[in-house]
Amino acid sequence: MKFLARKIKGNSLWSDALRRLLNDRFATWSFVVITVYVVMAILVFFNLVGSSWQESMGPSREAPDLSQGPLHWMGLDIFGRSVVLKTIQGTYTAMYVGLVSSLIAIPIGVLFGAVAGYFGGWVDDLITWFSTMLANIPEFLLLIAIAIAMGKGTTTVCIALGVTSWVGLARLIRAEFMKHKNREYVVAAQALGGGHMRRIMKHIFPNVLHIVIISFSLRFVTGIKSEVILTYLGLGAEIGQRSSWGLMIADASGELMQGVWWGLAAATAAMFPIVLAFSLFADALRDAIDPKLRH
């Protein structure tokens, strides 16, 4: 990707960061992996791939067989469904959970954090009080409480993750806004006659945007991993609705002792690269945007 890095012309901190990312082997490979999974999820969404995942292909729990074509490569499940197709379908669920929980957590976190940090005073007290209350409920128990209140399903998982995870982001953003609002460049904008909106949106926000991007990447990591656990606990997708890696791994808890390992292996093999890619990408982003923090 170095040839691409050389093509970036700008000299802003962003193009600097992008150049550094493109020169970073881990970052580029992570990006490639993420792109592959996103494309896969989109194909599943438009029913272009794996739409026949619920069809029975053969005997129940047939072991992996390379001779019967790609759909049998990872064996069949209890209903004779192709594990390969289920795994592909699961990609969509994983990306959906990551995306939707981010879309809930990030706007709330950024808005509350920015308002609390920038304005301070009673607005800050109120938001801090509210987020402290949420943060005081152990996350896992809150997830359960929300899941009980809303009923089971993938959407519940997304909402529960979104609602529990904005607090951390809001705290980060609040601290950054408090730091930046007294920086001289922001005071200068005030002295030049710039109003609150200009100072918040044009001056401070671009300087904290990297936190939002990093947090977006890390939300996917948490989202994908939490979906598995919540599904195992019986709070996530229910059998028959859609396929998910969580369901496949949860099923394995009963099947493994009977020697049925392929469902677990397929889901783990699918999950590992994407979670790793999002983690590495977040790390690389942090390094690229703020080289000072590099250790």
């Binding site: 991993k225 890696w245 790793l276």
Partner: peptide
């Protein structure tokens, strides 16, 4: 440690139980 964290907790529990105990 980064790689180890990219696998679900459940997988470790299942694998540990399966290999070490079963």
């Amino acid at each position: 440690s980064v790689a180890a964290q990219s696998v679900s907790l459940l997988v470790y529990i299942l694998a540990g139980q399966y290999f070490l105990a079963y």
